[in-house]
Design a protein around this nucleic acid. Structure first.
Lengths: 250, 250
DNA sequence: GTAATAGTGTCTGTGAGACACTATTCC
DNA sequence: GGAATAGTGTCTCACAGACACTATTAC
């Protein structure tokens, strides 16, 4: 930004125009499986492939606003109780064969929504288990289905998003973004297990998570959503950083 | 990217053109102070302010290539022994008063280079202590000088870059990117102290860093660059993740 | 000698993981 | 009763931080 050839201001010839889009990695936990929102492409290139939802940034909106607008459009829900943060930007010259596109990817974490999308958009978005899209991230999972190939560089973007989510669960209370407002320790544990792709000792997990100051606030009620002994309900506390962190097993 | 109004392909009217730039947060440790490379603006807006080096992305180069090209131009060095990674993208509507600019920021970590810049560019880049640019990041440092105000949203970008560097020192061997190819434990400790803005116990630091498998490889030689008992020289090992991590003091 | 830096040893508290055990529900 | 989930207690090992002590240089 400091090196224009015309020091008095910007000459349009100085800067080649780029198309700027936002792509969304929207994750949730459904049936104990980490799942991502994908659309089905109906036209070339990559016709028939799965793709991440996204769209062009408008002239008068910030990147953050473009991301939340696209998220609302794709899910059909206006006020979404989700976490949304910028992930990274992808700008390889040939990432879109038609033209030069810079894509700013965002990561969204959502609780298991009753219906993936109720709105009336052309390409219906659907939840797909990440293990089917990127088997390499979940060792031991079956090979990817043929129709689970992601278009463009979206496999890389999704992988980066999953890795970001995995890392954030360690030192932030973000796992609760996958849960309803009130949840049990067991539900929270299943989130960690689904995102990390591991199994955790329920007893150590319980002791650790309830012992971390400010993470979980008991609501005082109990529930028996899973069968077995009813569990205490909690809501998320106000910490932004977990201390000590929840470390992934080595 | 999935929601063009003209499904057969892209119509230029679909996507408003944006200028795309890269901005660089280049950090080094000079005289035990974390310092950043800044240029002095010679024209409005923000005339006379400090700014991060950067420039427009060219039509046929990737974002990563644009960043390393700008870095080479600003430092005047062709083959730089630096770490370079993408930081984040800044796209507020009014971040540049003249036009809509999307800026992809990159973070570079460099050893203390003999001369900040030998090349012949208009705005000479100079190393400035981060504590002078962003006193809030270093509690106890004197207030910022008047000429240390950063242009545009560069204060936020620099703060994000410093925070990224601080976090990466914990779980990656990236502190060595601030050191020459061979270095002592004391030099490495001064890097941690400068970046984190803390003082560390030299004895515990030594035991911990030499005990982390794969981090430091003894070269077999010694040096007495600091006066006092000569210290062993090490080179960086081949780990990419420190286990256990070097945790910042709470 | 003193000052300065390098490096080792030892103790103590905290926390992670393994796992025995009890509690409360549904069937 | 048995199966399933919730929750507590206890043990062991690893590591972070505090700090005494020795080692090797420059002056």
């Amino acid at each position: 930004m400091a090196k224009s050839q015309s020091p008095e201001g910007y000459d349009p010839r100085d800067w080649p125009p780029f198309a700027v889009t936002v792509d969304l990695v929207v994750l949730t936990v459904r049936d104990s499986a980490l799942s991502a929102l994908v659309v089905r492409r109906g036209e070339p290139p990559f016709e028939g492939c799965a793709a991440l939802p996204g769209g062009f940034v408008r002239e008068a909106e910030s990147l953050d606003r473009a991301a939340s607008r696209e998220l609302a459009e794709e899910t059909g829900l206006a006020r979404l109780p989700v976490h949304l943060e910028q992930l990274a930007t992808y700008g390889a010259v040939d990432r879109d064969p038609r033209m030069r596109v810079i894509s700013v990817a965002y990561l969204a974490l959502a609780p298991d929504l009753p219906s993936p999308r109720a709105g009336g958009d052309a390409a219906a978005a659907a939840w797909t288990p990440v293990a089917a899209l990127l088997p390499a991230l979940f060792p031991g999972s079956p090979a990817a289905a043929a129709d689970a190939t992601l278009a463009f560089d979206h496999a890389k973007i999704l992988a980066d998003g999953v890795e970001r989510a995995r890392a954030k669960l360690e030192y932030s209370p973000l796992a609760a973004a996958f849960c309803p407002p009130q949840f049990t320790v067991g539900e929270l544990r299943r989130v960690y297990e689904a995102v990390w792709g591991v199994t955790l000792d329920p007893r150590n997990f319980h002791r650790k998570v309830t012992g971390t100051q400010g993470f979980l606030i008991p609501v005082g009620d109990t529930t028996a959503r899973q069968g077995g002994r009813p569990a205490q309900l909690f809501r998320l506390g106000d910490v932004t950083l977990l201390n000590p962190p929840m470390l992934r097993p080595a």
